[in-house]
Simulated assay, not measured.
Amino acid sequence: MRALTWQGTAKVSVETVPDPRIQEPTDAIVRITSTAICGSDLHLYDVLGMYIDQGDILGHEPMGIVEEVGAEVTHIKPGDRVVIPFNISCGHCWMCTRGYFAQCETTQNVDQGKGASLFGYTKLYGQVPGGQAQYLRVPQAQFGPIKVPDHHPDERFLFLSDVLTTSWQAAKWADIEPGSTVFVTGLGPIGQMSARIARHLGAGRVIASDSVPERLEMARRNGIEVLNDSEVDVPAAVLDLTSGRGADSVIESVGMEAHGSPIQAAAVKAAGMLPDKLARKAVETAGIDRLAALNTAFAAVRRAGTVSIIGVYGGNADPIPMMDLFDKGVTLRMGQAHVKRWVDDIMPLLTGDDDPLGVDDLVTHQLPLEEAPHAYEIFKHKEDGCIKVVLKP
Rank of each mutant, 00 (worst) to 15 (best):
A219R: 10
A219D: 07
I263P: 00
L227P: 11
A171M: 10
W168P: 10
G204R: 12
Q192D: 06
D150V: 10
L227G: 09
L124G: 10
A247K: 11
E217C: 03
Q192T: 00
M256T: 15
T185Q: 15
Q132R: 03
L158D: 06
L136T: 04
R196D: 07
S253K: 03
A247Q: 12
V212W: 08
L158E: 03
D154W: 11
E252Y: 03
K123G: 14
S243Q: 14
G202I: 04
P149N: 06
P139H: 06
T122Y: 11
S261Y: 05
E155P: 04
H152F: 13
A170G: 15
Q264P: 01
A133T: 10
E231D: 14
W173G: 03
M218A: 05
A170Q: 01
G255D: 01
G131Q: 07
A219I: 08
E177K: 12
S180K: 08
N228T: 07
D162T: 02
A133S: 15
R220M: 05
L158M: 13
K123Y: 08
T165D: 01
E217D: 15
G204I: 09
A198D: 09
M193I: 03
P189R: 04
F183M: 12
V254T: 06
P139E: 07
K172N: 08
L227Q: 11
I224K: 02
P139F: 04
L241F: 03
I146W: 13
D150N: 14
G144S: 12
A247W: 05
E257N: 10
V138R: 12
Q127D: 15
